[in-house]
Amino acid sequence: MKSAFVWVALVLVLAALAAAPFFMQAYGLGLLIGLMGYVTLASAWALFSGRTGYISLATVAFFGIGAYMVAAFNEVLPYPLVLVVAALAGLALALVVGLSTLRLAGVYFVIFTFGLAELVRQLVTWYEINVTGTLGRYIFMSLGPEHIYWQLLALAAATLFITWRIDRSRLGLALRVIADDEVVAAHLGINLARTKLALFALSSVIITLVGAVQAPRWTYIEPAIAFNPTVSFLTLVMALLGGASRLWGPVLGAVPLFLLFEWLSANFPNHYSILLGLLFIAIVFAVPKGIVALVETRFRTNERAFRPVAMEAEGKP
């Protein structure tokens, strides 16, 4: 009975959100698009990082690739196919990153993702200068802002639904076991690398799609715009503040922080990133449990995975 009520309420909220563009001015809709984008980004980020403890600093690498794929293919392919191409590009990058780092301790993954956006930005820049000969691209598409909004809303709803399903599935249990103790997880028959890789790929594809769907908003795009590191940073802050291991956590973090960031960037454009940084440090200090409760356990197990089990036994050197 209770769950039926929750479902009805969710459908009503979704319907109300879907109807929002009919009652809004351009500015309000623009705000809503940005908000929905970050809700999806933070939720998708948390789907992997919040559940495995591998902190990804590369959100914008995937986001930017999605945007760039749209810029590159919007005039040669029909729109749905453009999205497919973007998703595949994000998937390919996720597999490269995941296969090379997810078998190792979390810190290698953090380091790898830390420079990844910069690497992709340089590669795209290099390609554009040396192969296509121009740096910027224009995106002329007849998609109105309300269509972009609806796509993002659908993507956000899908992300939350997928997360909800995963949390209740065997995969969800596997993730919780891995977060608690990787050694036990492996001894129960869980394939650690494949589980993490699958989740990372899923999360990355969603993030790529957010970038792809939002791309037409820019009309002009160049690497410095598409690969703006602030996107990675904001996503991380929102998800962590809200609680990255819970279904609704990232949403709860994204809504107030997005509005705050909008206000900050409108009123303090020059000091924006200083304020962001200070705010983030404050969050790390003020809500440590909200931030690390889950992530922490992961790194502990990770360290254990580094040292073989034998070390705790029999007084080995």
Partner: peptide, 14 residues
């Protein structure tokens, strides 16, 4: 390790 990564990531932006 997690905490220092997060805190210094904030410091980076400052």
């Amino acid at each position: 390790e997690v905490n220092s990564i997060l805190a210094t990531f904030g410091l980076l932006f400052v």
